[in-house]
């Protein structure tokens, strides 16, 4: 399964890649995007089975990206795990209402990500 990681921090993208390698999820190619705009471009040209996305990003934030993705029939069931510093109940609820499959607050442990991924597959 190919995976798309969307975060404006290259450090977080590296850490999430490392966690994916440790998790018991069969990962193929990992694509990286700096923001929602880049992520949408990638989604239109590649087929991925999982998206991990931040919320606070330049150009297009994670919530707008989520809304845009869910508006397309082909991506309605694509698992999207939000990974963000935004930790209020209101923000988590907003993400879920917009179609997030799961939510992990930063800072995160590898086990927290693995647990959420296990719940998605």
């Amino acid at each position: 399964m190919d995976v798309l990681i969307v975060d404006d921090s290259a450090a977080i993208r590296k850490i999430l890649q490392r966690v994916l390698l440790q998790a018991e999820v069969p990962v193929g190619t990992v694509y990286e995007a700096n923001d929602g705009v880049e992520a949408l471009k990638l989604l239109r040209s590649k087929t991925v089975g999982l998206v991990l996305s931040d919320i606070n990003m330049p150009n297009m934030d994670g919530l707008e990206f989520l809304t845009t993705v869910r508006a397309e029939a082909a991506w309605r069931d694509l698992p999207i795990l939000m990974v963000s510093t935004e930790g209020t109940q209101a923000k988590v609820l907003e993400a879920v209402e917009r179609g997030a499959s799961g939510y992990v607050r930063k800072p995160f442990t590898a086990d927290q990500i693995k647990e959420k991924l296990a719940g998605l597959f």
């Binding site: 921090s9 290259a10 977080i12 606070n56 963000s84 510093t85 935004e86 930790g87 930063k106 800072p107």
Partner: peptide, 21 residues
């Protein structure tokens, strides 16, 4: 280098983001 500045930026994002929450 770029990696170092990016790591400090992300640490700041997480600390200040949690203070904000």
């Amino acid at each position: 280098c770029e990696d170092v500045l990016d790591a400090v930026a992300e640490i700041t994002n997480m600390i200040i983001g949690n203070v904000k929450t």
